[in-house]
Design a binder for these strands. Structure first.
Lengths: 144, 144
DNA sequence: AAGAAAGTGGGTAGAAGTGGGGAATTTCAT
DNA sequence: ATGAAATTCCCCACTTCTACCCACTTTCTT
């Protein structure tokens, strides 16, 4: 399980080191894709395969579904880790994720998220303002 | 499985390089045809054969089905990759797909799609407006 | 304090994408 | 049928990007 928050940098060659703590569980090949809230998702291959299978079995007749599948699959790319544990980010993902030099890598159960550091900090502050509300929700979910 | 998004160009001789990542899985002969939403579809031979069989056995009673089959089958052409991994696009497909110089090649599970880059970007932006809806869909699929 | 591990940066050979010349083939009009 | 024009195919050339290797610095561990 992936947990924790790490500050890394994208170098001039668009390479990004993944936290060493995650490498064992990730293997040496991962899937990077556009996520929600303008960040990127990183999946281990096994998790991705389940997800892709679900996508592949959706009916393609309806335009909305078609566009959904397109965005998910088109936004995804498989990347290999180099000998230093870095991935090479395609330009379009770097762009769509709003990433510059400083990024924050967040572990979330079965995936990672890659955020622009500034954006992540804003998001966190915003989230903290809603702590009370979140606590309520947690309560409803039976989490204490 | 084909995934990802690649920016390529059609040269003055109407040649288009397919992304090298896809070449192994495509083989050196593919089918190009008119797709949905004003783009082109590219199928590996095996996938096309299955698809063509299905199309051939569809009931032809309904006008919509008939026209769909016509567009798919009539527009289809088989093209070989040259030694640089490029295909030669027939003029009518280039025209019907609204393709100019800059195109985006998208990997979508078992096929590729070829889009005019400007059109693809508009499509993507449009799709992203439906992020909320997409998030719901993700939930339904059990994706977190 | 010394060694190991992690993150970052850079050089370089090879691969990938793009463009163009010229021969061979096809198409079309004469 | 024949010549002209266009198209297709096969090379080769150039530029950019990527993969692989090595090196430096900082942090953590022993």
């Amino acid at each position: 399980m992936f947990i924790g928050e790490y500050s890394h940098t994208i170098d001039p060659k668009k390479r990004l080191a993944l936290p060493s703590k995650f490498r064992g569980e990730l293997g040496n090949k991962v899937i990077v894709t556009r996520g929600l809230d303008n960040c990127l998702f990183v999946y281990p291959m096994k998790v991705w395969e389940e997800l892709a299978t679900k996508l592949g079995t959706l009916p393609v007749g309806e335009a909305g579904t078609r566009s959904f599948i397109r965005v998910m699959l088109a936004g995804a790319t498989d990347v290999e880790l180099d000998s230093q544990g870095r991935i090479l980010l395609p330009e379009y993902l770097k762009h769509d994720g709003g990433l510059k030099k400083d990024v924050t890598i967040v572990g979330l159960f079965n995936r990672l998220e890659i955020w622009d550091s500034a954006k992540w900090n804003r998001y966190k502050m915003q989230a903290e303002k809603n702590t009370g509300k979140i606590a309520e929700d947690l309560g409803k979910l039976g989490i204490y």
